[in-house]
Computed example of a mutant assay.
Amino acid sequence: MTRVLAGIRVIEFGRFITGPYAAMLLADLGADVVKVERAGSGDPFRSFEKGLYGPQFQAFNRNKRSIALDFELEQDQAAFRDLIAGADVLIQNSRPGAADRFGIGPEQARTLNPRLVHCEITGFGRDGPYARRPAYDTVAQAVSGFLSMFVSPEEPRIVGPAVSDSVTGLYAALGIMGALMERERTGQGRLVEISMLEATMHFAVEQFQGYFVNGKVPSPRDRGRVSQSLAFRCADGRTIALHLSSPPKFWNGLLQAIGRPDLAQDPRFVQRMDRVRNHDQLEDVLRPIFASQPRAHWLPLLEAADVPHAPVLGADEVVADPQVRHLGIDRTLVHPTEGEVRTLRTPIVYDGNRDGIVMTPPPVLDEHGAEIRRELAAAAPAPAMATSESQ
Rank of each mutant, 00 (worst) to 15 (best):
A98D: 12
G97N: 05
D82S: 14
R110S: 10
A85E: 04
K64E: 13
D82R: 14
A109N: 07
R65S: 05
P106S: 05
I84V: 14
L90K: 01
E72W: 00
G86R: 15
A98R: 08
L116P: 02
P55T: 07
E107R: 05
L73A: 13
R101L: 13
L69C: 09
F57G: 11
A87N: 10
N93G: 07
G103I: 08
L90I: 12
Q58D: 04
L73D: 14
Q75T: 14
A87W: 10
R115I: 03
F102T: 09
T111Q: 14
N93H: 01
P55R: 09
D82Q: 15
A87Q: 10
A85W: 01
A87Y: 09
N63E: 07
K64L: 08
R110K: 13
L69G: 12
D100K: 02
L69P: 03
Q56M: 15
K64P: 11
D70W: 13
N63W: 05
D76V: 04
A99L: 06
Q75Y: 00
A68S: 03
A99V: 06
A99M: 13
L83S: 01
L112N: 08
Q108Y: 05
R65K: 14
L69W: 11
K64R: 11
L83M: 09
P114C: 03
G54L: 11
F57K: 02
T111E: 06
P96M: 07
L83C: 08
D82K: 12
F80C: 08
L112R: 01
A85F: 12
T111D: 04
E107S: 03
P114N: 00
I67P: 04
V89Y: 12
E107I: 02
G105D: 02
E74P: 08
I84L: 07
G105W: 04
G103E: 11
I91S: 09
L69H: 10
Q75P: 07
Q108A: 06
A78S: 12
D70V: 06
P96W: 05
I84Y: 12
S66E: 13
Q77S: 00
D88Q: 10
R81C: 05
P106N: 00
Q77R: 15
A109E: 11
G103F: 08
D76T: 06
Q56G: 08
N63L: 09
A78C: 04
G105K: 03
Q92L: 15
A87I: 08
P96D: 12
S66C: 07
F71G: 01
G54H: 14
R110A: 12
P106R: 05
A85G: 11
A68Y: 14
A59C: 15
E74Y: 02
A59Y: 15
E72V: 04
F60K: 06
F102R: 11
F102G: 14
D88A: 06
I104M: 07
Q77I: 10
L90P: 12
Q58F: 09
Q56E: 13
